[in-house]
Design a binder for these strands. Structure first.
Lengths: 223, 223
DNA sequence: AATAACAAACAAGCTTGCCGGTTTTTGCTG
DNA sequence: CAGCAAAAACCGGCAAGCTTGTTTGTTATT
């Protein structure tokens, strides 16, 4: 992995999940926590936030509920960790996708959109989306979600731009492209079961064209 | 209201909510049902689907829970009516907005997007969005939501195009423009608390330019 | 008198947080 | 290096609070 990707991921990395040079018990603990987080992610994406219970997470993680509450004393503690974990995973997938494209002209054509689309189709982003949506109407969740989400969003934006040399000197344009693509793709994710797949594909292709034109500066028509 | 709007709304109109030429008891019943539906909408948009309880709806409607269950025997019955009601209200706002623009050149500039944006900012659409999202992970809700949503979405698309003469002979283009705008704006609605308002506005303006270019056929660049 | 609208109370099922108890690992000490 | 106490990981059960659907009862309309 290149230096930039490492730095970005280091800034986004969740705490308490690195077991380097620790004893066996510590490693076991980290292993269990990751199992819990994975279970929470799967629970969120398949059952939604409202139906995600501590009982279900514990079952999917393969441990007792009492054991889980030892690692995460309250549901809020667990959710807070899930937020960091999902954001980290999303950008890991994104940077992996970018890195896989050696061609400097990678952002032309649909490349950028496909990578974004892939990073938004992960189980982790599905879980993040459930939390983001639930936070809009759940004050208790919003209290722990919004500060983290805003900070992580800003960090990811400021750092991932480094992997796109062609955007480096146009932060505003990059932010617009990112927000625009993320918003449209998130909208597609919400309507995935309502709209025909063919329609969704057309929207994605059109979005790709739009972003490509935006990058080439061809989209400032007469207002 | 013009003939086209009337016809579209007639196709989308919910059942059991017209008290024309009925007795007093019937009118009272419809009045109460509407109060319940409004309460459900407010409950959904402020507390989300997961925390929307029959108790809370009844309180917000100003009646007892027992009285509410007389009109809607089960929660599913109520939600089914809420779906029809919210879709109807959304397109009513949309068509009102279109009708208010006498200028034939109304779809130029930002007009179309602003109307869509307004129709998506209503409390009713917020409630609809909550249901759409919850249906993705709640099989019981999906069973009553998806068939209705798909049918209503198709109906609305096929009918609202009549109000845009310039689109009449390009259903595919109109469908793309609608889906594209709806997806992007829905994505904005989800991230409204995470992204700065300024960023959201930039995205909306850019979306307006994109749709306008799409309509003028200026957006088929080299792939 | 029959029906509709409305109200209140009840039982069953979940979910959360907390508590006591058990097993395994760690680290200190003689 | 053997032994032992402390700590960590883990398990099962409990009470309190909600939510849903049902049931029984009261008032008003047809």
């Amino acid at each position: 992995m290149d230096d930039i990707s490492i730095r970005v991921l280091a800034l986004l990395a969740p705490e308490g999940l690195d077991a380097e040079g620790q004893g066996w018990q510590q490693r076991k603990s980290v292993q269990t926590r990751i199992a819990i987080l994975e279970a929470a992610v799967n629970c969120l994406r398949t059952h939604g936030y409202g139906r995600t219970t501590t009982q279900l997470i514990a079952e999917m993680a393969g441990i007792s509920r009492g054991a889980m509450l030892h690692h995460y004393a309250t549901k809020q503690d667990l959710i807070a960790s899930v937020i960091d974990y999902t954001v980290y995973k999303r950008w890991e997938v994104f940077l992996d996708g970018v890195r896989a494209l050696k061609d400097p002209a990678r952002i032309y054509k649909m490349a950028g959109i496909e990578i974004s689309w892939n990073s938004l189709q992960t189980p982790e982003y599905a879980a993040y989306l459930e939390l983001a949506i639930a936070a809009r109407t759940d004050p208790a969740l919003a209290e722990i979600f919004l500060p983290r989400a805003r900070r992580l969003d800003q960090t990811a934006l400021a750092e991932t731009i480094r992997t796109f040399p062609e955007w480096t000197h146009d932060l505003e344009g990059y932010a617009l492209a990112m927000d625009y693509a993320t918003a449209t793709l998130a909208g597609l994710l919400i309507n995935r079961d309502i709209w025909p797949e063919s329609s969704q594909q057309v929207v994605r292709e059109f979005l790709g064209k739009t972003i490509a034109m935006l990058r080439r500066g061809e989209l400032n028509p007469p207002t």
